[in-house]
Every structure is written in C-alpha cells, then in structure tokens.
Write a protein that binds this DNA or RNA. Structure first.
Lengths: 342, 342
DNA sequence: TTTAATAATACAAACGGTTGTATTATTTAA
DNA sequence: TTAAATAATACAACCGTTTGTATTATTAAA
C-alpha cells in the first residue's frame, strides 16, 4: 500500500507549468480567456498529475454546493423511497446530488435535520413533514434564510414561501368509493387511521362525500379509525374490527396499502371469498398489493412523479433568486388500479 | 416576505463586540483560552444575531466534511434500504451524515458516483458494487487517494485496503437445504439466478454441499438458474420451469425472496398445497414473505446490522489515519425464519 | 515598584478554489 | 515604426472558518 499522497491542487499544476493559479483555474473551466495552447498544456498536466477538484473549496467560493437536502419521515416505506428516486433522477439530470435524511417520524429529528442543512450544506430542501409536525416555525426560519424549500405529501398547513406537492386525497377516496358503489356494493366498510391527521381526515371526507352523493346509509359499525402507529397493533385492531362486525360488509375501502392487506388477510381467514363475497381497495400502490393473492385493487399515487415535480420546483427556485418567492401548489392526480380484489 | 438577509458570520459578531474573529471562533468552541465572561458575551450575541456556522467553510478549514458517501445499486430494494438505515443510525450517533447515491445497477454510474465523492465531498465511502462491476480499479483509485472505503454485500473480489462486510451465502444455503432434508424432503428444487454471479454461485454451492452430505440425488431437472434481470421475465421463467417439470418436487429452495414468492404463486395456481404438498424457502427476509398467504419461510439476513458494521468499520478507519490500512473482513450469520410455507 | 510568569486576546496564514482588475505580450492600424 | 487595440496572463481579494504565533493585559513573585 503506497503512502497516501497529498492531493494535487491548482497551485501544483500552476507551478509545474510556470503559470498563475488563475490561468489554471480558467483553463480547466475552458474559459476563452486562456490561449488554446495553454489550455491544452494545463489539461494534459492536470490529467497526468491526477488532479481532482476540491468540491468543498469550490462550494465555499461559489456559494453553491449543488446538493439538495431531502428529509423523509422514514426509509422503510416504499412511498418515500419512490419519491426519492424521482427526486434523484431529476436532480442528477440537472447536476445536483441529494442528501437524504430520515426524521424517524419525530419532530425533533426533523428540526435537527433542518438545522443541519441550514448550515450551508445544501442549496435547498425537499421535506415531507412528520405526522407529529404541527408547528412550522423551523421551516419558516429556513425560508427566511433564503434557502428554497419544497414540501410534499403530508402537509397540514401551507407555508408561505415554500412550494407544495400534494395528491388529492379527498378526490382519490371519493373516486374509489364511487367505484364500489357503482359496482352495486351496499355495505362499504371504511378503514382509516388516526383521525387527527389531515391525510386520514381527507380520505374519510372522500368516503363520506361519495356515500352521501349516492344516498348510501353511513353506518358507524362499518367505520374503523385505527389508533395505532405500530404495525403489529394495527393488525390486531383490524382483526378485532372484522371479527366483531355486526353487519356483513360487501366492500372495504382501506386508507393505506397495509390496512387493505391486513383486511384481506383477516377476511380470508374468516372464510370470506375475495372478490366474490367482498371487494377490497387499498390506498397506495407500492409493496405487496400486486403480488398478494388475490392481488389488491389500489389507488395508485404518482409517487415517482411527485419526486420529480418537487425537484423541478426546487431547481426552479434556484434559478430565480430574486425574491420574494411566494408559493406554487401542485396537486397530483391518482388513479385506480384494478386488480383481483374487486 | 422579508428580504433575504445576508448570513451572519463570525466577523459580524466580532465587530459588534469589538473582539477578534479568532476569539469569537474559540468562544463558540468553548475553548478555555477565552475568558468565561467573553465567552458568554459571544454566545449571547451569536444567539441574538441568529448565527449559523457555515459548514462548508468549516469543512474546508478542517479537511473533514463529516459526511459518509453511500453507493447502493438501487433504491427500490428493501435490502439496501435496511442497510442504509443501519449505516445512518450508526453514523448519526457518531456525528456523521450520509449521502446516498444509487448506481442504478450500472457500472458507469457506480464509477461516476465514486468520482463525485472523490472530489472531497465525503470523508469515506460505503459501497455495494453492482453485479456489472468486474474490475475494481475505480475503487482502488479511491483508496489510493487515502479515502477510507468499506464494501458490502456483492463482493466478487477482495480489495486491498478496503474493509468488507458480507454474509455467508454458502453456509446459509447449506443450512436451509439441510433443514429441508431433515424434514424428509426428497426432491428439493433449486431456483437460482444468473450463475455467473458470485452470490448465486455460493448459494448453489451450499445447495449442492447439503445434498451431497446427505447423499441426495441431484437432479438437473429440479434446478433452475434464472437468466433474466427483469422482474417480469423472472416470473415467466419460473412458471415455465414448474409447468414443465418432469418430477414432482416436494420442496423448493429459492435464492431470493422474489424467486420464492413467484414459485409459491405458480405452485398455488397449479394446485399445489403449501406446505402440505411442498415446502418453500426464500432467501432474504424483507418485503412480502411475511404477509403472503401462506407466509414464507426465509433465510433472514442481518441487513440492518450489516449497515451498522459497515459504518463502524469506516469510522474506525477515520480514527486511525496512519496507514497502511490493510483490510477487515466481517462475515455475518444468517438465520432461518420458520413460517407457514414449511 | 519592577520583573517574570501567565492569562487573554489579536494577528495572520492557511484550507483550495473563483473572479474582478491590473499588467504584460501581441496584434492591428495609422 | 509607433500608438492604440486587444489578447493573454498575473495579481490579489474573497468565500468563512481554524489555529499557530505574536502581542498585550493581568497577576504573581521578588
């Protein structure tokens, strides 16, 4: 193992060629201010000496890091990973890298991550707030520093100066439930999550709206708002719900993919035939819905596109540094992916 | 929206308090060289002015970015995401951030990412080589620059100077197949992947070893080496295999989670009862195996721990900058998670 | 007191680039 | 040939920190 060699820098090249650092810098930039023959000499020498520009020095000097900071609530959810893919692809095409941080579903972590990014590490931030996040001063602070911010997914409150990328939860649910109704379903169960959360409120709202529009009876006994955050306990809640249900539902609209799958699991165990006896629709089209037997009909979110859009909005902000930037709000459409469970 | 304000820097604080920049810097560092009363003044002023240190300047000056670069072949594989979680948790505890890059399963991208990291953005690199990666000069270059490197998962060849974190594929397969044999299975099918790849070679090796040890007849007709890289085509290959199989297998050992699930899907469709007629074991414990009906017995890899170990080794390298660093190789144990499919 | 020792602070170089301006070399026009 | 115009390059400040050394203020010892 050879000794670690000191990095080659502009100065080293300059000295060897007996030119100034400035000339070397410009030559490497293909700046027309340096003579062609000089440029070639410099490029050749740089190559032969194994020159690697120092990104940190560049950033300090230019005030740009070409890094986008991304904060997601968790890594182990395909939804966020897909969004990150979208961000990454778009970013890479525009010469940006992404620095992903997980807030571990904790407000504290979210704030800490934001503060870390605020230290000049990133040119802008794409953030999906945790469900815990109720105040937004930490985000507003960042914006006030002049750092561009784009929010996506779980947005409880619009933030002045930040762009927003959302899906239309309300409408998506409405469409799914409408679809069930039009198929002639009478007793459509609703499986939602903690009702304090905006997502679940909106999805519930869509359910109610569709039911009302078609004059369906809304039965409390067919509605479950899961309270648990823990996967394991969700399972139990859903089992209890279906095992003690006083009316036989003929359809289930579940507010997450997992709720849908857990429902199917329980229903199959109880002897229901899917889709003969009962139809099931889940929300979100990632993970297991497709390979499960039977495969599950889902509301597909344009996850990847969401990431792309977020990156696009952010980079747009980079390129118009003349404030004040107000906000763009993009609402993306979902679509119903029909499978065996309906 | 107020105007973007210029960032507060040490100089601003220094000027206000009529002290030198050095003193301010040291005061914020709690350096005992500054008087307590001065330090307090500085801290107070820094806070009231909303001072945020500039990470880039710090990095340039200190030569440390406190960022770990991570390169994985793809985002949309739970395996890598879990490893990243492990890396991130360990890194965060030791005051490092991670910058994740995907090589999109392409050697070119892998090399490009590596070069980007080489520009001084990261203090060290954790890399899982793509299946395409056959030469390692790009990695050796990085190591020669004195940048610590840890490799994990798909390592075809040990690289001098880099640490390695692996699982014992051979033994894991051996154990799984041995388990099936001990359950009295006679016709154990093997579903592997492209046999040129080291992983699949090792897993096949484990299968053969177990079969030989227990004097089982090895039948070519029960062995499939999938050729496809494409999920969709995998499905077809596996369907064809089982639909045309001349002998009824009573067990399947599949080299990936997905192969296992696809096998189950096909077998169920063909009327097999699992586990009554046939047992199935998959490799990898992430994703669907658990929720599938029936749930699938799997070889669980210590994915999260793998990430932690990788981060640990890397940070260890940071702390012993006296070369030459040779290499550490860590082989992690798997375990068989029993479920309904066996 | 006056000096020596030490505490507190200031100065300035360094990290490795970028970029505006000054300077020198070369070409063009008179 | 020489002045003016322009091309090529050099100089030096700057980005915001850290840190070794020099300087000044304070305290302790003689």
């Amino acid at each position: 193992m050879p000794l670690k060699k000191r990095r080659v820098k502009l100065e080293d090249i300059a000295r060897k060629l007996n030119v100034s650092i400035a000339t070397v810098s410009r030559a490497l930039d293909e700046n027309p201010r340096v003579k062609l023959s000089t440029r070639e000499k410099v490029l050749k020498m740089a190559k032969s000496m194994g020159y690697m520009p120092n990104q940190i020095a560049k950033s300090l000097s230019s005030g740009k890091t070409n890094i986008i900071g991304v904060i997601i609530p968790r890594y182990d959810e395909p939804f966020f990973i897909e969004v990150c893919r979208g961000i990454d692809d778009y970013a890479r095409e525009h010469n940006y890298k992404i620095l992903i941080s997980s807030s571990r579903n904790s407000f504290e972590f979210e704030r800490d991550n934001l503060i870390a990014f605020e230290r000049g590490l990133v040119d802008g931030i794409i953030l999906s707030p945790t469900h815990e996040t109720e105040i937004f001063t930490h985000i507003k602070n960042v914006i006030q520093q002049g750092i561009p911010v784009v929010l996506f997914d779980n947005i409880r409150e619009e933030v002045q100066g930040a762009d927003h990328v959302l899906i239309d939860d309300d409408k998506a649910s409405f469409n799914a439930v409408e679809f069930l109704i039009k198929k002639g379903k009478k007793n459509i169960a609703f499986i939602g999550g903690i009702i304090e959360k905006k997502v679940f409120q909106d999805r519930f709202k869509g359910y109610l709206e569709a039911m009302k529009k078609y004059n369906m009876t809304i039965r409390e006994e067919l509605i479950l708002h899961c309270k648990s955050l823990d996967r394991e306990y969700e399972d139990i809640e859903i089992q209890n719900f279906f095992n003690n249900i006083p009316i036989q539902p003929d359809a289930v609209f579940a507010c997450t993919d997992n709720y849908g799958l857990l429902s199917m699991k329980t229903l199959l165990k109880s002897g229901y035939k899917i889709p003969e006896d009962i139809s099931v629709i889940g929300f979100g089209d990632l993970g297991l819905g497709e390979v499960y037997v039977p495969s599950m009909t889902c509301i597909a979110q344009p996850t990847y596109v969401m990431g792309q859009k977020a990156a696009e909005l952010l980079i747009k902000q980079f390129n118009e540094p003349n404030e004040p930037h107000l906000k763009n709000v993009i609402k993306l459409k979902t679509k119903l992916v029909l499978r065996d469970s309906t």
